[in-house]
Design a protein around this nucleic acid. Sequence first.
DNA 1: CTAGTGACCCAAC
DNA 2: GGTTGGGCCACTA
Length: 109
Amino acid sequence: MGSDKHQRIYDAVRKVPRGRVASYGRIAELADLDGHARLVGYALHSLKRDANVPWHRIINSQGKISLAGPIARTQRKLLEAEGIRFSTSGKIDLVKFGFTAKARKGKRT
DNA sequence: CTAGTGACCCAAC
DNA sequence: GGTTGGGCCACTA
């Protein structure tokens, strides 16, 4: 496969354990692309259902699903199936389900 | 090359 | 709680 960046992103996403969620920025860090959160979203959007990637565990920093339409419903279902609870606002408790591979690099002091 | 767009993030109001 | 504006950079036309 050619796209290394995409590959790295997919690999990082696969690192997210079941029952946990990670924000785009967090994935970017794992993929060695810290700061390029957009690329994560871009790669995921380009992702196909065939891909073996738990894209549903990826959400935005607000702990909410960035997608819209029927797919958002699907993602939420998948997350609930993993034991993740949604707030009344449809948000996820990042404190409990937020995947932290390694504390922030604290780049921005 | 330029311009527009995007499953983003953050600071400030 | 929300909106607005700036920043970041890959991808497409």
